[in-house]
Write a protein that binds this DNA or RNA. Structure first.
Lengths: 330, 330
DNA sequence: TTGTAAGCGTTATCAA
DNA sequence: TTGATAACGCTTACAA
């Protein structure tokens, strides 16, 4: 069922049908004729052919590091809702934290699939990243990481960790930090720096053995916490870079008969649904992940439609959610 | 940069370049000439034009009910990994548990976007679903729900709930059930039926007020549990349809000074990462979600490539993970 | 082994 | 307001 058949059945040329479908500029008379035929046949124009001709695909590529992570899940939910409402389809690329695949997918998107835009939920930026991003022939929005000079939406990880650490320090003297690898500027370096900034401003010294690096998992948190108890037994607060790490730490502390928050305070980042379910309920940073996805998608739609938008860098706000794993004065 | 320019630069016709790109059947001599030009220019054929001509898009549509759910996340991870490795791109449609949008997306996929196949992570089947599925011009695999006569991969929810309930009944006499709406055949009806089957085989009567329906959330579980304590105080075991519901129940019980598992046993379904982190650690059913996604994707690839595959219905195995929220003899 | 030519289903230009 | 006609970039008979 193609436009030619519709034209024939309606007794017009295919150009007229095309106009009916797009601009308008068709006489009332032919308009109704065409409408009737289309309704009868259930004809739907081929998006493929249309794309080939117009150069617009109404598809955007979204590259994410890990689909099964609550923060990424929330961001993706925000992205898809805006994009779908705006008439775009979403081509999803899950890289499983493999930076090389990230580059691969970006290249794939720009060369083969002809997407109209790209959202990159980023973790690290290698030279290969910069190169492929520079080559990108379509608008790009970077999410959850700042890339200066480009449109991006990111969390205030530095500010968040500084603030949550300050709260903890009202009762603690020997804080420790369990973070993630620093190549991840946002979740790695910024959070770590925020922690250190708070300590410095209080003149609290944090020895190296109190600053550990875990992967993003519960088990990683557990392991680091064990290590911490061995090498830095005076610890009285553990600031963690993610909720998962904090869960692992909580479990480890409990199994070692250490009471939270009385003996050791614990904090996380992410405010995943389970934070209010663990015992004790976890004090954490609430990042507006879904909203940041929404922002990024809106920004991309703006870039794709009016092509003279200047890049903006948007830093999202956050909230500290005080629960039972810390011990601050109200 | 199109095939014509490459042809011209290599001094051959564009048909020869096309052959070089596909079948082969090009002389050694021209082959090297073409390769050189392609390398110089970085030419990449337009997938769009190719699709228009061949009718294959190498895109599959994946419809999911909720992106930010651990079970769906795991299934999607399995799906994308297989599909990407097989050279397909994934168009993702997140319906946010809206059955109408599910139908809409299916229609969109089949009519406008010309996907080569569809994976539907299903929850309910309305008549509208059946209609659009019947119209679907491309192979389909249903995931996480059984649809007889069609290719599908699903969890053994009946068997899982029966078994976990049997375990619980070794120590309990007044079990209760907190489920989800029964229109969801798998998570709703099958799990409920499994629970009831186990009770029946032990001649345990379960009054209506001990069978509640929650949404999929922690809060839902909390609320139902409160209700349960009021209307069925003799309860000594709560079998929950999902981990989230179980987390809510655990929290509610703790706040009411009821000890788990001594006073009341609790079980969930899903074995999400946090199940080993809550206190007490949750006894639950481990469903092989990621593997089921892998299976479904492989099946779809089979259907898309050799079009004479007969539909199969695959029931996945499961494991009962006994932890501390139950109290069974080892 | 290669080139010519006819599509795939649209939209855009230009006369009429 | 409409209809030829030429693209968009590719594949595939068919003929040479």
């Amino acid at each position: 069922m193609d436009i030619n058949q519709i034209a024939q059945m309606a007794g017009v040329s295919r150009a007229t049908v095309s106009r009916y479908l797009n601009d308008g500029y068709v006489s009332q008379e032919k308009r109704v004729a065409i409408r009737r035929v289309i309704e009868q046949t259930g004809y739907v124009p081929s998006q493929q052919a249309k794309s080939l001709r117009t150069g617009k695909s109404y598809v955007v590529g979204v590259v994410i590091p890990k689909i099964n992570s609550t923060s990424v899940g929330r961001m993706t939910a925000g992205i898809t809702s805006v994009l779908n409402d705006a008439g775009y389809q979403v081509l999803l690329a899950n890289t499983d934290n493999d930076a090389a695949r990230e580059v691969e997918f970006l290249r794939l998107f720009s060369e083969r699939s002809k997407v109209d835009g790209v959202i990159l939920v980023a973790t690290v930026f290698t030279p290969a990243h910069r190169e492929v991003l520079d080559q990108l022939p379509v608008p790009l929005v970077v999410l959850d990481q700042v890339l200066s000079g480009r449109s991006c939406v990111y969390q205030d990880d530095f500010g968040a960790l500084r603030e949550v650490t300050e709260r903890v320090l009202e009762r603690a003297e020997h804080p420790a930090y369990i973070g993630v690898f620093e190549e991840d500027v946002a979740a790695g370096r910024q959070r770590h720096d925020g922690f250190l900034a708070a300590c410095r401003s209080r003149d609290v010294h944090v020895p190296d053995e109190a600053q550990l690096v875990a992967d993003f998992s519960v088990d990683g948190g557990y392991g680091c916490c064990e290590q911490l108890l061995a090498s830095y037994p005076q610890v009285d607060a553990i600031v963690c870079a993610t909720d998962s790490i904090a869960y692992g730490a909580l479990t480890c502390l409990r199994e070692n008969g250490i009471e939270v928050p009385r003996d050791v305070q614990v904090t996380g980042v992410g405010d995943s649904e389970l934070s209010q379910v663990v015992t004790p309920r976890l004090t954490t940073v609430h990042h507006h992940y879904k909203t940041s996805g929404v922002e990024a998608a809106k920004m991309l739609v703006g870039l794709m439609t009016s092509d003279d938008m200047v890049p903006r860098e948007v830093k999202m706000g956050f909230e500290i959610v005080m629960r039972d794993s810390t011990d601050c004065p109200a």
